[in-house]
Design a protein around this nucleic acid. Structure first.
Lengths: 106, 106
DNA sequence: TATATGTGCAACTTTTCGGTTGCGCAAATA
DNA sequence: TATTTGCGCAACCGAAAAGTTGCACATATA
């Protein structure tokens, strides 16, 4: 099974899970209430997210609280960074262009 | 067919395509040379990327140059932003803690 | 101790995905 | 005009994904 973060966040339910537990750790049952699927399906998503270390478990009696491994999210941010550089450069170029026009007006 | 950006960037080949054409617009044939698949397979990826408006075509004779719609990439960045806020907050909290410890030492 | 609850795991099914092959079409070239 | 080249599209195939159902197991609770 190929498991990487990008494949993990491809599924909308998994993205919703990530957003939910980003605020506070939650149990599978609590999470399942938010979706129109079975608890087992949610559990499966949690396993996938755990496998690529996007979330981690915290056992509390018979309950298992899942919480976000925020640092792992940085890996996605790292990939986006190369593009952020591009759009920031373009923005600056536009900025330069605008100020050049401004100067010409004077 | 459900097509969203996150599903689009889930595939490693598609991510590579995006990175390649971010630098300069390319034709399907030119792109295919970079991968160990057929031109048709690449073409299929290009169609998916086009469908979710991550790339756009520019016809030049019988050749089609594909180029990145950099603005669309911002949507991914937008999703990441909520988590960036979290890790920046935590970083600042750690920073506060460290300076508190420093003060106590004095 | 018997029962209820919270959970993960395995088996199975249906859908989706990524790839190949074969085709047709338009533009360039001989 | 005949041929080559660049391309998209449709049909098909195997693998993987996402969901359901049924089960086992540990921890609470009566």
């Amino acid at each position: 099974m190929r498991r990487d973060i990008f494949q993990a966040i491809a599924d909308p339910t998994r993205r919703a899970i990530i957003t939910l537990i980003a605020l506070q750790a939650m149990t599978p049952n609590a999470l399942a209430e938010h979706f129109d699927t079975t608890r087992q399906a949610v559990s499966k998503h949690l396993r996938i997210l755990t496998e690529c270390e996007l979330i981690k478990q915290e056992h509390k009696g018979r309950e298992i609280y899942y919480q976000l491994e925020i640092d792992k999210m940085k890996e996605i941010d790292k990939w986006i960074e190369q593009f952020r550089k591009i759009w920031e450069t373009r923005f600056n170029q536009l900025d330069d262009l605008l100020s050049t026009i401004k100067k010409q007006k004077k």
